[in-house]
């Protein structure tokens, strides 16, 4: 049914992604397809990494860890943006196209009042991506 899953991850808050990661792994096993973990960062030094190369390495080792833990085929796709706080959604939508993902599994917070002002990432991506989107509540 699907050929590739993309899972957006925030390496700073992996603890909040448990359900989404598990869901993606289950679906990957069900359809025997790979999962690509996508993360958006900036070229500037940040909490996760000091450089783009270091960030890509960290994401790759996260993906490798998931492959070992879940017994699935995984990949990593690091995206660098000038302004990740704002460019996150379009960057992820573009990434799904680039890596050929037809299913996006992503964690999203429980909706609150602020979603009327700043729509959630999951909602925006589901509204604009050509891929199917599975939003998993945190």
């Amino acid at each position: 049914m699907f050929t590739q899953i993309m899972v957006p991850v925030d390496l700073g808050h992996v603890d909040r992604l448990g359900k989404a990661l598990k869901c993606a792994a289950d679906l990957a096993r069900l359809y025997k397809i790979p999962v690509v973990y996508a993360a958006v960062s900036t070229a500037l030094p940040g909490k996760i990494a000091h450089t783009p190369v270091e960030f890509s390495d960290r994401l790759a080792s996260f993906a490798a860890g998931q492959a070992d833990a879940e017994g699935i085929e995984t990949g990593a796709h690091a995206i660098f943006s000038h302004d990740p706080a704002v460019d996150l959604d379009p960057a992820l939508i573009k990434a799904a196209g680039e890596i050929g993902a037809d299913l996006i599994v992503m964690a999203s917070h429980i909706p609150n009042l602020m979603d009327y002002v700043w729509p959630s990432n999951g909602g925006t991506i589901a509204g604009h991506s050509k891929a199917s989107v599975f939003v998993v509540r945190m």
Binding site: A49, H50, T51, P52, V53, E54, D57
Partner: peptide
């Protein structure tokens, strides 16, 4: 967690 930082993009002096 941040030990063993790779080079930025080509050699640099972190």
């Amino acid at each position: 967690e941040t030990a063993g930082i790779p080079e930025p993009e080509g050699p640099a002096d972190l």
